[in-house]
Amino acid sequence: MTTGQDQEEKKSGSLKVIYAAIVANLGIAVSKFIVAAITGSAAMMAEGIHSAVDTGNELLLLVGERNSAKPADAKHPFGYGKELYFWALIVALSIFSLGGGLSIYHGIDALRHPEPLQDPTWNYVVLGVSALFEGYSWNVSRKALNKLRKPGASLWQAVHASKDATVFTVFIEDSAALIGLAIAALGIVLGHFFDNPYFDPAASVLIGLLLVGAAFTLARETGGLLVGESIGVEATRKVRDLFEKDPAIDSIASLQSMQLGPDEALLTAAVQFRRGMRIDEVEDAIERLEKAVMALYPSIKHIYFESGALRSAMA
């Protein structure tokens, strides 16, 4: 069973993922821009844009984390948990427009007007250091995902199942960053090996397309959570099994759920209680089911029974 202390640890873990990504991306972005200005590498410029956008994105995720922690009020009776999903969707849009769009534009412009090849030594140094920093940030987000990953599941399946937009957003960003570094390095190496100035800007275009793909992946994951994703097929099945085993339940019409935040969900139950039950027996059954569901999935903090079920039980 997940306790309040466990949820605090998860919150702390999400913030650790963001802070690690900010430190890594900020330092990397500055170094990439400096080297891109010295060497004229379009791929390094694309990578600098990528890291700068990622730094801004992590700051947006911090805004989302802070706003999602606000307590419920009259205007938002179920709290502000979905604020995190909103800001994660903004992050996806910024990756698409700023990261992907600018990298593709800069690469195409460099293909039209290629610059003479320069000494690539500093490019390799920065790419190597960047890989170390990005690898550290990626590993922090990977460990956070592993805590949520079920036995036998892949990291991608863990991303798809995760309700914590902070963790899977940083993981997808860092994964794209590591692949982008490999593409940039390959473009620079091939350009100097063949003495061809077109490989480098072509790498910039590929990095932009990679970021567009990452943006669409993030938008799909966060968009589903924002518009009201359920707790999942497997979780719903387990809750249904729990209801079916209770002696007070005659039949189950439907169980509907909605994720309200990383650690908060709502469940509505349209069930048929046994006919002729006394009001105190119905109340005991409801209390018993609520405790059982919350013990099974502590994130389900709101459980509502359809009024028709109560009327039929006491008819």
Rank of each mutant, 00 (worst) to 15 (best):
E47K: 14
V170W: 02
I18N: 12
G308N: 07
P247C: 01
M45A: 15
E47C: 09
L226F: 14
M258L: 12
A182T: 01
A235M: 05
N123C: 10
G48Y: 06
A42W: 11
E65K: 14
A315S: 05
G101A: 08
K16P: 00
I188T: 13
T236Y: 00
K143I: 02
L226N: 09
L102E: 07
E65T: 09
I28T: 05
L148Q: 12
A215C: 05
S230I: 05
E173P: 03
F78D: 01
D119S: 07
K70E: 07
K70R: 15
P262A: 08
L296D: 09
D250M: 04
L60I: 12
I95D: 05
G40E: 14
A235V: 00
P298C: 02
V282M: 11
N67Y: 15
S41W: 11
A313E: 08
Y85C: 04
I49R: 08
L98H: 01
D246T: 00
A253M: 00
A313I: 05
G224W: 06
L15V: 07
I49L: 11
I183H: 10
S175H: 00
A42H: 10
V91K: 10
W87I: 05
A202V: 10
A20V: 03
L102T: 09
T268H: 10
I249N: 07
G152Q: 05
I188A: 09
G13R: 14
N196S: 14
L62T: 14
L209I: 13
D284Y: 09
V63C: 11
M277N: 02
V233R: 10
S97R: 01
A309C: 07
S130G: 15
S230G: 13
I303L: 15
D263M: 06
H192D: 01
A215K: 07
D280W: 13
L93I: 13
T222E: 12
E221T: 07
E234M: 04
S254V: 07
S68I: 11
S204K: 12
V35M: 03
A177W: 00
P201W: 01
Y124C: 07
G232I: 03
R275T: 10
V91I: 09
D280L: 13
D241H: 04
L206R: 13
Q259H: 02
D284W: 09
G208K: 10
R288E: 06
I18D: 12
A292S: 12
V271R: 04
V205G: 12
D280I: 11
L218T: 06
A69L: 08
V126Q: 09
L267K: 05
